[in-house]
Design a protein around this nucleic acid. Structure first.
Lengths: 238, 238
DNA sequence: CCTAACTGTGTCCGGTGGACACTGATGCGC
DNA sequence: GCGCATCAGTGTCCACCGGACACAGTTAGG
């Protein structure tokens, strides 16, 4: 039972007993995580190395291994600190749809602020209390809607998937510029040079080029998912 | 205009002129990509190195650089070869909903077969003809539904996001065992030990524990998205 | 036949994550 | 007050990574 994830769980969930003997630690987990977040925010996860994190904190890289077993656990700490707990402001106001919509928008801003969390949360991993609090809030918003527990979880997962997908799409455009336009430009170039073996795609892109909203894909998917949930609830209560 | 992506486009889209002079190349792009896919399929993308790919082909790692400018381009080739073109069987049979559902299921099997494509297609990247053919098929299925070009693209992107999200979730359980059960077990452990500061989540998990279907999250999200699309079309034609 | 083009190899470099032994600071039990 | 177990940070070392570059061997065209 005691696999290698146990240490990660302890790091994310505590406790973190301060030892009484020996010299005072100059660092703590939160400062290390913040330093890593600063690097990943500015230069991306690929430029994150133990050396850089240690240098930012004024220590040697090996000093970090006194706090963290390895790079993977450091990234897990960074993700937990970057995502943080779900803000509880305006809790339980409005119906499930308003609550979920608000929740999804807040989650999107968090992901947008730390785009590297996308690639950091790809594989199987241990979730921290902050991440779980986000799930808690979404499931809670669906209380009393007639959906089963599994369905409430699935709905939350579905929304998270959309948030992640949109965040990734937004990253393709860089910090400035709207994603759809740039994606459309690249695709349009390919269409023009490589001939029209994708007729439906070219037609859709030509029509999409005149579209304006830079968050159109986000709004579209969000409303479609919420519509689908509403349809299910309708079928249940009928 | 001639940025570093130009070489990637040439690699993915051709042409690949065979030189007349000099010794015959012992390798070709397809064999290299297949070797990389074999490694990534069995040991994951993190264990993919130029050395391993070269060893599998019986050459030195530097020989690969005669065909591929770098590791990133090799991975792009692998993704294109692994995803491949969208199968055109049973094309344009049934309504948009049946077509899209079939399309999404086929895409899911492809992603399940090559889970590493998830992390390989995270950042902004150049898409190959195979990937585009999948998009083409989805957009084509939505022809004549009253949706605008941008909306058809957004719908396809929405479905891809769901497929990716489910694939990631499935990876958490390893090759065997159903994802929801294992995820629920980890979460349940945390609930039990860390106390009930997530009441809604614990309740939902307790209810989800009795659920049976191992692809329930997949089916749930898929039907919700399709329901949402149907709702939009209903509003349009009304 | 010769030469230019091209392939695969060997060597080298900076950087990475991590193991390990070590020095020095610290607080508890005596 | 003192000694010693404990723990923090450092320096050194290693295997491995992606990639640059010069080189030898092979091939086809003039």
């Amino acid at each position: 039972m005691g696999d290698e994830h146990a240490e990660t769980v302890r790091l994310l969930w505590g406790p973190h007993p301060r030892p009484t003997r020996g010299p005072r630690p100059t660092l703590d987990l939160d400062r290390i995580a913040q330093a890593g977040i600063r690097i990943a925010d500015s230069d991306g996860l690929s430029d994150l190395s133990m050396q850089r994190v240690a240098a930012q904190l004024g220590v040697t890289k090996m000093a970090l291994y006194r706090y963290v077993p390895g790079k993977a656990e450091l990234i897990a700490l960074m993700v937990e600190a970057a995502i943080g707990p779900c803000p509880t402001s305006r809790t339980a106001r409005g119906g499930w749809r308003e609550q979920l919509e608000d929740w999804a928008r807040q989650l999107l801003t968090v992901f947008r602020r730390h785009p590297w969390t996308l690639e950091a949360t790809i594989g199987p991993r241990v979730m921290g209390p902050g991440e779980l609090s986000w799930m808690e809030r979404a499931v809670c918003a669906l209380d009393g809607t007639g959906l089963s527990g599994a369905e409430r979880m699935d709905a939350a997962v579905l929304l998270v998937g959309h948030v992640r997908c949109i965040t990734q799409q937004a990253r393709a455009a860089g910090p400035a510029g709207n994603p759809e336009a740039q994606l459309g430009a690249i695709l349009g170039d390919l269409m023009q040079t490589r001939g029209g073996q994708f007729p439906a795609l070219t037609a859709a892109l030509a029509s999409a080029a005149q579209s304006d909203g830079q968050d159109q894909a986000w709004e579209f998917g969000l409303q479609r998912i919420l519509d689908g949930l509403a349809t299910l609830m309708d079928q249940r209560t009928r």
